[in-house]
Design a protein around this nucleic acid. Structure first.
Lengths: 112, 112
DNA sequence: TTTCGTTATATCCAATCAAATATAACGAAT
DNA sequence: ATTCGTTATATTTGATTGGATATAACGAAA
């Protein structure tokens, strides 16, 4: 049984985490459900945690990543901005490339 | 001010963490000081944490990474094995390559 | 103006994690 | 035998984290 190489990448802004794997999952769930509370339920995390993550994302980003509305039809909701979608796309691509890169590096430890 | 990409890589064996950045730092300090307690002090971590890390490393590795001795001249000590040194070398190289790789990926977010 | 489901926030409690402390076991040297 | 500094381990305390709960604010629609 050989060793495996694992990795985590994330994007920072002024030493604050902007996007990591968990945050991207949350943003994708918001995009699918249209609300933060439904996204939290779909990910089986508490609303509190989801809200804290989203708040941190929007505070770290240069431009809004979601538009959140309170009240009104359906009680309100959250929507990804175009900017948010482009951030997710960039993260996913870099992350995928990183995995592929590390796969190539496996040869450096297969003899150990 | 632009975003930054950060990363962490680690090597796993049977779903146990074998080597990460912290563990590599500890092993290098052991190599320099010849003892686990001195290594812990030099890294400003508790002996307990250092011991737990080293124990986990040696339990996850296929072959011993350190040889630990109790009692005797100087009270005992810990020494890196050749195998441990080769693991560190491989980790460092892969990690360095990963940083360089992610530097190249920066162009994918510099417009965001 | 009442209803509704949501965002936003505070509070409390449990659980997990880290630090600090204490102590035994060890073996070469004296 | 005693000393010494180390490895190895348990215990306790404190800090941080996360979950659960409660509640206010909101605004469109009925």
């Amino acid at each position: 049984m050989s060793y495996k190489i694992k990795s985590r990448i994330w994007i920072e802004s002024e030493d604050n985490v902007l996007l990591g794997e968990g945050r991207v999952h949350l943003l994708k769930a918001i995009d699918e459900t249209g609300s933060l509370s439904k996204a939290a339920k779909s990910l089986n995390i508490s609303y509190k945690k989801a809200w804290q993550l989203l708040d941190s994302v929007n505070k770290s980003a240069k431009k809004p990543v979601t538009i959140n509305s309170i009240g009104g039809k359906g009680g309100g909701g959250a929507q990804l901005t175009k900017y948010g979608k482009s951030l997710i796309k960039a993260f996913d691509e870099i992350n995928k490339n990183c995995w592929a890169f590390l796969d190539e590096q496996l040869s450096k430890i297969e003899h150990l």
